[in-house]
Amino acid sequence: MKNRKSSALIVLLVMLYMVIPIVFTILYAISTKWQITLLPEGFTLKHFHSLFTNLRFYQAVGRSLSVSIISIALSFTLLLPVIYMGKVHFPWLNRIMRFVSMIPFAISGVILAVGLIKLYSSGPLAISGTVFILIGAYFVVIMPFMYQGIKTSLDTLEVKTLIDAAKLLGASEWETFWKVIFPNLIKGVSVSVLLSFAILMGEFVLSNILVGGNYETIQVFMFWSRGVSGHYSSAIVTSYFILIVAVTALILYLNKYDTKRG
């Protein structure tokens, strides 16, 4: 009993630690003035109003969503066949992939950004300053999470036996992949997708250095808006937080719906 109480206390403290900054950010976003008083002097939605009537905000959100979704889709599309082939036909491929997928952890964002600018500012592939370099960089950033998610999902599936069973039922390898393997990967990979999405939506260093104002993402917009007012910045953070929660809830709901199917 004592153990349960102390566990509950620890959970409560951790929750408070995580929730308090969010609550106060939201409060700050809807306060008129909050400088010398314990609580806000008054409440208003004017900061949200001015944010939601600013076209630049929607464009920034749209860019962040686009670049994140494209990077994740690209990562999934390119990594899945490689990991699948490594699992089914060429085990040596997965040894290489395991090593490659760990490299991004060893390189910090600034170093990666400077290296990429140097490499792609001239020559046949001069994409520096464009969204393409950002997609490339994001692909690298999320690779460890996507690789691990896909690999773990495949490992838990007993892929080889399923392929054998499908073959004996007359299915080609392509049919087996689409009708049997792929649908079973989605659930496992969705956690990696969520994690990657949250990382990319909150990413600032790479987007600011690589593209900055050329392709203003939500984080770069937030950086710019700090000069407008703290309340305005808090409104952006609150909106961004709600967006992430909504996307997370949607993916979790879809997963749950899929599990209950049948």
């Binding site: 054998d164 069973a165 299915a171 049997v180």
Partner: peptide, 26 residues
């Protein structure tokens, strides 16, 4: 040839009906 495996090898995303009908649909 029909084959039954030790670990069943049922397709986890398909229900009983869909598993059995899989070969016929293919």
């Amino acid at each position: 040839i029909g084959m039954v495996f030790q670990n069943y090898a049922l397709f986890p995303n398909l229900n009983v009906w869909e598993n059995i009908a899989f070969g016929l649909k293919v």
